[in-house]
């Protein structure tokens, strides 16, 4: 019984998680060839054929370094924007009466289950030169001509902020909700003004939630593909997009794999950190 309970999921993960990642490492050491499969074997004629040539190429070509830096930069700005919009929302929800909290949280989560593609698509329409934002700004006289915000790095940052905002709000709410109201009352009794109570009591106690939310936004944003593909032009070569292009357009599976390995190494620390906060965050969802 015990064996079955753990055996089935463990077997599934070994087959569809362990094996795939071992193979990414293996293929990153081989070379692209035309054939099936389109990469060289690691062992041929009884000797090891692998090399670090792909990684040397990644270091050599500035394009890849630029893509990594651009991805990190955009992920940081999107995480910051999510914090700026998401923290006040979580704070406001935690401050409403019990009756209102569940429906408001559901409203935060609702966009998350509506199609991701559709939500990104909406921003093409809103940010186009003939789109909503450009027309409104022109009719208000703030800008003279049409404003082309798509494609741009700015549009990518907006798209990612928009997509990942619920990931930020829910864990922050979960940590705010746990704060004992008596603490704020005590601080107020001791003479602290509301702003002081907020910055000295509420914010420090909600930091674990803010950290968890930031990681849930940052990690997927670094490797994001759909948003930069739809909202960013050739000027925003994010690493997720470069992996996609190496794989689908250039059919260079080994180079795509070595880029994935680099991305994994970059994200190892943030992923390990976010593991600790996953279960508490899920409780906020229920």
């Amino acid at each position: 019984m015990r064996r079955l309970l753990i055996g089935l999921p463990a077997l599934w993960l070994a087959l569809f998680f362990g094996l795939p990642f071992a193979l990414i490492l293996k293929v990153s050491l081989s070379q692209a060839v035309i054939g099936q499969p389109p990469f060289t074997p690691l062992f041929a004629n009884g000797s090891f054929q692998g090399s670090l040539a792909n990684f040397a190429l990644l270091l050599d070509d500035e394009l890849y370094l630029e893509a990594i830096l651009a991805s990190l930069g955009l992920a940081v700005s999107s995480t910051g924007a999510c914090l700026l919009i998401g923290y006040p929302m979580a704070w406001a929800i935690a401050g409403t009466s019990r009756r209102w909290r569940a429906p408001l949280l559901a409203l935060v989560a609702l966009p998350f289950v509506t199609s991701f593609l559709v939500r990104v698509y909406a921003w093409i329409g809103l940010l186009r030169p003939t789109g909503f934002l450009s027309e409104v700004l022109q009719s208000l006289g703030i800008i003279d001509g049409p404003l082309a915000l798509v494609p741009s790095a700015f549009a990518v940052a907006i798209g990612m902020t928009y997509t990942y905002l619920p990931f930020m709000v829910l864990p922050i709410y979960a940590s705010l909700e746990k704060i004992d109201p008596a603490l704020a009352a005590a601080a107020a009794d001791l003479g602290a003004r509301p702003m002081r109570v907020f910055w000295s009591v509420t914010v420090p106690l909600s930091l674990p939630g803010a950290l968890a939310g930031s990681l849930f936004v940052f990690v997927p944003a670094v490797g994001e593909f759909v948003v930069p593909e739809l909202l960013g032009g050739p000027g925003t070569p994010m690493i997720g997009k470069v992996i996609w292009q190496e794989f689908f357009n250039n059919r260079d599976w080994p180079l795509a794999s070595s880029l994935a390995v680099v991305l994994l190494v970059l994200l190892a620390a943030p992923i390990a950190l976010s593991q600790k906060s996953q279960t508490p965050a899920a409780r906020g969802l229920g």
Binding site: F216, V219, G223, G240, L264
Partner: peptide
């Protein structure tokens, strides 16, 4: 948490 591009390629 992993980016989908990595998971897709690995699978």
């Amino acid at each position: 948490t992993l980016p989908e591009v990595i998971l897709g390629l690995a699978l």
